[in-house]
């Protein structure tokens, strides 16, 4: 009887160890994909970029304000559509929500010309090393990350924001 109990415990322990190993394998395999991909609710990775006028912008400096972090390129058609909304609302929400546009892949000339053409006044930085793009796991453009005053990713929008209302709702979401 005692022996039977001992064996049961022994088997349970061995099976538990095996289950643990298998479980960990599953866990690490299934999270492999998600790793590096930013999800809503995650802490937004801090970064520092220099904008076209030479000013440095560090994300953590914006604590206490919402941030509209937009990744874009001049060749991307939907990016062009959302720029005017961003420009308009950045003025409206000044001091509450900051717009930070990160250009991916263009040269300075193109970015400057684009900003002039669209009359953009919010800071635009070029992520020439693509490090910020990688940190946020951005692939298709445009990609917008709404970052709360506490520095959390509130919302991730992949694709163009066609309507002003859409953009306004995003601004409202991260307003302090």
């Amino acid at each position: 009887m005692n022996k039977k109990k001992k064996r049961l415990i022994m088997r349970s322990v061995i099976l538990a160890v095996l289950a643990l190993a298998v479980g960990y394998t599953f866990y690490s395999n299934l999270t492999k994909e998600a790793r590096g991909n930013l999800q809503e609710g995650d802490q937004a990775p801090d970064f520092v970029l220099t904008d076209l006028s030479g000013e440095k912008h560090q994300l953590s400096d914006y604590e206490g304000k919402g941030v509209f972090l937009n990744f874009w390129g001049t060749w991307c058609e939907p990016c062009k559509e959302e720029m005017p909304h961003m420009e308009k609302l950045s003025k409206e929400y000044e001091g509450q929500v900051e717009v930070l546009a990160v250009n991916v892949g263009d040269s300075e000339l193109q970015t400057k010309k684009f900003a002039e053409q669209y009359g953009l006044t919010f800071p635009i930085a070029i992520d020439s090393s693509k490090e910020v793009q990688k940190a946020y796991g951005v692939n298709p453009l445009p990609a917008t990350f709404m970052i709360s005053p506490e520095g959390k990713v509130e919302k991730v929008v992949i694709g163009g924001l066609v309507k002003e209302n859409q953009v306004r709702a995003l601004f409202e979401q991260v307003k302090p």
Binding site: I14, L18, A21, V22, T25, F26, N29, L30, K32
Partner: peptide, 22 residues
Amino acid sequence: YNSIWFIALVASIGVSLVICSL
């Protein structure tokens, strides 16, 4: 080769190896 069921199969072989041997 990254699907759950394939990993499960390989893991089962591992479990089977341990228990069969013991």
